[in-house]
């Protein structure tokens, strides 16, 4: 436990001393902020329009803040995570191998799993902080509107679980190579595959289609955005994380064998 904490602190410190975390957080805020602004303004214009409509003709179509703005925000956050996470994970192993500090970690009395968990949680916490910045938007919505808070919470839970899954894939990619560029490309490629694989279900045989859509991140992500927390989805993400962390341990172990 102490070892995991030591690696965790070191990784967090490295994240915050290098510009990458700040740059990514800034890019993330600019994009989400722009869309938040756009979606909210569109929504309020629609509301105004329909209010006039209602006063003239009576009756008002159901306009839902959750559906029109919040769900869209979570979709956007997930999509941006697809790009951000490989950039957060790329250096975790690749850089240690390139600079020779892997030799330090491997010859210190640390278990491979301890190093890995320290790195994983550090990246997860940084991701959670970046995602946490968007709570501001929810506060704004809460101040001027009446969102249904249930789907907001489930949305965040979903985004965090998905982030954990993305991070596990990203770390795995980083463990395969000494080059951060290759790590980021591999990580992004793999994530994109898990993102779109559900669409393949449309044109494959039903059996394979089922597997594909089960493996798709989106299949398990959408219920959270709608406010549905299903243990099956939680188990999927936790299993996904464990599987890729397990693969990473095996890769790091096997690199000793060469």
């Amino acid at each position: 436990m102490r070892n995991i904490a030591a690696i965790f602190q070191k990784e967090i410190k490295t994240y915050f001393t290098s510009p990458i975390a700040y740059v990514l957080a800034a890019v993330f805020l600019v994009i989400t902020g722009y869309f938040f602004y756009g979606m909210t303004v569109t929504f309020s214009n629609e509301c105004l329009y329909y209010m006039q409509y209602a006063s003239r003709y009576g009756g008002m179509p159901p306009l839902n803040l959750n559906q029109r703005v919040i769900r869209g925000m979570f979709g956007l956050i997930s999509f941006i995570s697809l790009f951000i996470i490989p950039m957060l994970t790329m250096r975790l192993y690749a850089e240690e191998k390139k600079s020779g500090t892997m030799e330090l970690l491997m010859t210190s009395p640390l278990r491979i799993t301890e190093t890995l968990l320290g790195k994983f949680f550090a990246c997860f916490v940084l991701y959670a902080i970046i995602i946490g910045l968007t709570v501001l938007y929810q506060v704004i919505l809460g101040a001027y509107g009446h969102p249904d808070w249930g789907p907001v919470f489930s949305g965040y839970l979903g985004v965090l679980l998905m982030g954990a899954a993305f991070i596990a894939v990203g770390i795995f990619a980083s463990s395969l190579t000494e080059s951060q560029i290759i790590a980021v490309v591999l990580g992004f490629g793999a994530l994109l595959l898990f993102w779109v694989i559900g669409s393949a279900a449309i044109f494959t045989r039903p059996g394979a289609g089922k597997i594909f859509s089960y493996l798709s991140i989106l299949t398990h992500m959408l219920p959270f955005q709608k406010g549905v927390i299903d243990t099956k989805d939680i188990i999927f993400f936790l299993g996904f994380v464990s599987f890729f962390l397990f693969l990473t341990v095996k890769v790091v172990e096997s690199q000793r064998w060469r």
Partner: peptide, 9 residues
């Protein structure tokens, strides 16, 4: 090791 295993940052 042959090359000191240090974190440059």
């Amino acid at each position: 090791p042959e090359n000191p295993p240090v974190y440059n940052d």
